[in-house]
Amino acid sequence: MFEILKIRMLRLLIRIAVKMKWRGKVDATVDVESINVGSGAAPIPARTYKPKGRSGASAPLPVILFFHGGGWVGFDVNTHDPLCRDLCRQTGHIILSVDYRLAPENPFPAGVNDCLEALDWLIDNVEKLGGNPNQILICGDSAGGNLAAVVALQARTRHPGKLKGQILIYPVTDHVSTEWPSYVSHGGKEYPLTRVGIEDIWRLYLKGSKEWQQGQTSHDLATPYRVKDVSGLPKALFIIAEEDLLRDEGLAYADRLKQAGVDVEIKTFPNQKHGFVGTEPSPAHYQAVSEIAQWVSRK
């Protein structure tokens, strides 16, 4: 109980810190609405972002289904509100940001199930949002990038051909592993995401899970890099931070997709650390959003 209370307090402090960094710099040129998605007994909170004045437009817009980062434990739709606003304005797409359940209160795969249910709901309701059913993409950063990758893999059989692209921002693709040199080179205390930090995040994510047994190191709903078959996926854009513990596993997953015949583009940001997209209004953040906008315009 003490650990959960500590985590909840940390979530609040993070939310305040991010809000302060974005104070006076949040894009106000989009229409934002809080909604519920899903068809289960417990509605899943979400938020839509639409280009200003396009809420009632007749021409349907492409849609990006977005999953926030935060190690499956922290952050929410509020911390990622500035990023979703910028994505909406720059891309001209509708953004559907999902407030999936967090660990450790909700053990793996609760968050994954929420994200899958959100995709199900979007497929059925995209036109009601003013979206184009033939132009649905998926996006996430860090743990959200993990969820986006997992959902894209599951969508191959769940909704064949419905996803047209995936945008993975420094995604978690593997369980803690000594296989990745970036764990050593960029996992020290001077980095925002440390080796100790990622180990603790995984522990909290899997704590109490009935799907993950002691000693297990992979699961199709948790470690995209370890999934046996990664063919038949929609084209992918990888945003990679050069000075990031997750760099090598993200690049390795991109390489696996390439080898499987998936159209992959990689944008590596020199001198950037984990979390540079969305946490503050930096030049690198805006450049990353611009790169995403350019990529989706070519789809």
Rank of each mutant, 00 (worst) to 15 (best):
F2S: 14
E3A: 13
E3C: 06
I4F: 03
K6M: 08
L10D: 11
R11H: 13
R11C: 13
R15P: 03
R15S: 12
A17G: 13
A17H: 05
D27G: 01
D27V: 12
T29W: 00
E33K: 15
G38D: 09
S39P: 00
I44A: 11
P45A: 13
L61V: 06
I64H: 02
L65G: 09
L65P: 12
F66R: 04
F66A: 10
H68P: 03
G71W: 01
V73C: 11
L83N: 13
D86K: 13
I95K: 10
D99I: 00
Y100D: 03
A103M: 07
P104I: 07
P107L: 03
D114T: 06
A118F: 04
I123Q: 13
I123H: 12
E127V: 15
G144P: 10
Q154W: 01
R158S: 09
G161A: 11
L163F: 06
G165S: 06
H175G: 09
V176T: 13
V176I: 11
V184K: 15
H186F: 15
K189H: 02
P192S: 07
L193I: 07
D200G: 05
R203A: 12
G208R: 05
S209M: 08
Q214F: 05
H219L: 07
D220W: 07
T223C: 08
V230A: 14
V230P: 09
P234K: 12
F238K: 08
F238D: 06
E242R: 06
E243S: 04
R247W: 02
G250L: 04
G250F: 01
A252N: 10
A252P: 03
Y253C: 03
Y253V: 06
K258F: 00
V262A: 00
V264A: 04
V264D: 01
E265Q: 14
K267P: 00
P270C: 00
Q272V: 01
H274A: 03
G275S: 05
V277E: 01
S290Y: 14
R298G: 04
